[in-house]
Design a protein around this nucleic acid. Structure first.
Length: 279
DNA sequence: CCTTGAACCTGCGGGC
DNA sequence: TGCCCGCAGGTTCAAG
């Protein structure tokens, strides 16, 4: 499920609730997620304090006070749940934590596409999962010119280029669709065919849709524990995603007849777009 | 090197 | 009601 905005919101919620907190109990309740869960997880985490909680791409990095970092990925269906009471484990709770400040946390992931690893903090950047990641979308180094050079010469569809975490990280299927809609770019266009003006507009659109989603999540984080304890999931309005057959929101002000939003498959994933707006 | 497709796994909703 | 199908917000690996 989660793309960059959801992961960012989870990180902020965890940081707010758990920065400085001491882990008094941690346990894994199965041997594997997408990758094996470290066998010594419970013993390694016991009595450690959380120093920082940060995000890299769609990964959550929980830095501990002994030079180790707990690296989590939520996959498609992963959630972090914060509790103020030690409730019984529920189905698909794979990791559980108890903290000295009275909080409890659960990593819940029905499909188990998520992952969990313990990494020396000094070696984080070279970890297998992080080493080949591209640039953060909000990194100042990612200028329109740099973005253009990443896309240049690629004949892969621009939608798939946006999903490629080796180029720019954090964008997933929803926000790729939304950004292309906003930039008026057809998802099947060859990545390298975008003009400098289109590249600039697309970068702005990517940043805008991510920012708005983060803000929507942040606004639900007034308290770090929501009613259901879930972090990072919030209602958000999508212009095209999941709206196959609906009338595009731009059709009101359009002079000519507007086609309906279409769904196609690219790289095995659904793409939603407006054939009238996106060229 | 690049691109494509399948694989990993569970749950849900729609059609019959 | 039950069954079967397709679909789901991610990543990785093999094959062309």
């Amino acid at each position: 499920m989660p793309e960059l905005p959801e992961v960012e919101t989870v990180c902020r919620g965890l940081a707010k609730a758990l920065a400085g907190a001491q882990i008094i109990h941690a346990a894994a309740h199965r041997a594997n997620l997408r990758t094996p869960i470290p066998q010594n997880l419970g013993n390694t985490l016991k009595n450690r304090r959380i120093v920082t909680v940060t995000r890299r791409a769609k990964y959550i990095q929980i830095e501990l006070d002994d030079g180790m970092t707990l690296l989590l990925h939520l996959g498609m269906s992963g959630r972090m749940v914060l509790l103020q009471h030690d409730l019984p484990l529920t189905k698909h709770d794979h990791l559980s934590f108890a903290f000295a400040n009275g909080m409890y946390a659960r990593f819940n992931d029905p499909r188990r596409f998520g992952s969990c690893d313990l990494v020396p903090t000094a070696e984080l950047a070279s970890h297998k999962s992080l080493a080949d990641l591209g640039v953060e979308p909000f990194d100042d180094a990612l200028t329109p010119s740099v973005f253009g050079s990443l896309l240049q010469g690629r004949k892969t569809p621009i939608k798939l280029a946006l999903l490629d975490q080796k180029l720019v990280v954090g964008v997933g299927n929803i926000y790729a669709c939304e950004a292309l809609f906003r930039a008026h770019i057809h998802p099947e266009r060859a990545a390298g065919s975008c003009t400098a003006k289109e590249v600039k507009g697309l970068l702005s659109a990517v940043r805008a849709v991510l920012t708005e989603a983060i803000d929507a999540g942040g606004s639900s984080l007034r308290d770090y524990v929501q009613a259901d304890g879930e972090l990072g999931y919030f209602q958000h309005h999508f212009a095209v995603y999941g709206r196959e057959g609906e009338t595009c929101s731009n059709s009101d002000k359009a002079k000519t007849k507007h086609k309906k939003i279409e769904r196609i498959s690219q790289g095995g994933r659904s793409t939603f777009y407006c054939p009238t707006c996106q060229k």
